[in-house]
């Protein structure tokens, strides 16, 4: 695990979406092979303003408006990437990837292995639970992370959005780039054009002395609130932001287990078959002797996400449920 590699100058306080724009702009200026394809990008700038103004700056040939044809969008990205471009396919919502799942899991992920080629491709989408109901709130990261050939980024801050998208755009690999919709408007520092976040390197976002919470994405925000409340009760919790789910920073996870022996793993996806299951299993297999008790997972319930706000909140972790989990590991 590294702490944030902030050697470069921190320059602005843009939003999470603007941080994406900043990283993409810099890389598009450097690499003429980068183009963006998706729906409603040129004028609207995407549903989260994630590419606002880029068509005006770089031209409509490099920010291509697409019909609502997810399979064709991703296939266009895969074929163009194989040909030597570096496309960004913007699906707006990761839920829409279901219409292109063969292109992602079967094609993009496996071409390098068989065909003496490479697929430098970013598939960007928002992910995670917010209002919008069952068809706009899927957490699919475990599906992508468990597919050989794909990497998955899940930034939680503007700094990491920019640093990770720039790394993705310098690599030769297909990357699933998931931005949590509830983070779209948050603001924070970003660094200059020389700042890159490597995949597979978690970051400690809060220091502690009693236990660790390992998480990513919007859950980092909830975890921080829980940690503050626990601090008032005399429990000091470190929070580790994974930043990417594949590659996964196993070293950071194992170090946390060894250091505290008390670990909570947290995300919004239904717990069954989730990334939290993977982390808990791996950490337990490798460092069972260091654990003071079972790793506790906090995640979503096994239910579709309701459009009713209270019911949607009830489906995912809360400050209270995280505090309860930490107290459980503290009881060992």
């Amino acid at each position: 695990m590294t702490t944030a590699t902030t050697t470069a100058t921190k320059v602005q306080h843009p939003s999470y979406s603007e941080a994406f724009q900043s990283g993409v702009r810099e890389e598009m200026t450097r690499n003429p092979g980068i183009f963006i394809i998706g729906t409603d990008l040129q004028e609207r700038g995407g549903h989260f303003a994630q590419v606002k103004g880029i068509a005006q700056e770089f031209g409509v040939e490099r920010v291509k408006d697409s019909p609502i044809s997810e399979a064709a969008m991703v296939a266009a990205g895969v074929g163009a990437a194989m040909y030597g471009c570096h496309p960004i396919v913007d699906l707006n919502f990761i839920d829409f990837a279901f219409g292109a799942m063969d292109e992602i899991l079967n094609q993009a992920a496996k071409i390098r292995f068989m065909f003496n080629g490479k697929v430098p491709l970013v598939i960007r989408a928002t992910s995670g639970v917010a209002l919008g109901g069952a068809h706009h709130c899927n957490s699919l990261e475990a599906l992508f992370a468990s597919t050989p050939g794909l990497s998955v980024a899940v930034p939680s801050t503007p700094m990491d959005v920019k640093g990770l998208i720039k790394t993705a755009l310098r690599s030769d690999d297909p990357v699933i780039f998931l931005m949590h919709k509830k983070l779209s408007g948050i603001r924070g520092e970003i660094a200059d054009e020389n700042y890159f976040v490597p995949f597979g390197k978690a970051k400690s976002v809060r220091t502690g002395s009693d236990a660790a919470i390992i998480s990513y994405g919007y859950s980092i925000v909830t975890a921080q609130k829980a940690a503050q409340a626990l601090e008032a009760e005399g429990i000091s919790v470190e929070i580790i932001d994974l930043r990417t789910l594949f590659p996964l920073d196993e070293e950071a996870i194992n170090n946390a287990v060894k250091k505290y022996g008390r670990v909570v793993v947290l995300d919004e996806a239904p717990v069954f078959g989730s990334i939290t299951a993977e982390i808990a299993a791996t950490a337990t297999e490798k460092n069972f002797g260091s654990l003071k008790g079972p790793i506790v997972r906090v995640g979503g319930v096994r239910a579709p996400i309701s459009a009713n706000p209270a019911m949607a909140d009830a489906a995912i972790p809360t400050v209270a449920s995280i505090m309860k989990a930490v107290k459980t590991v503290m009881s060992y």
């Binding site: 074929g79 194989m82 040909y83 068989m114």
Partner: peptide
Amino acid sequence: DVTRGHFGGNGIVGAGVGIAMGAALG
């Protein structure tokens, strides 16, 4: 062999045309 302009056979019906379309976009 991508380096020789052959972007692959395919086990999935229809997938090759999508990839060829993407190559044409490239």
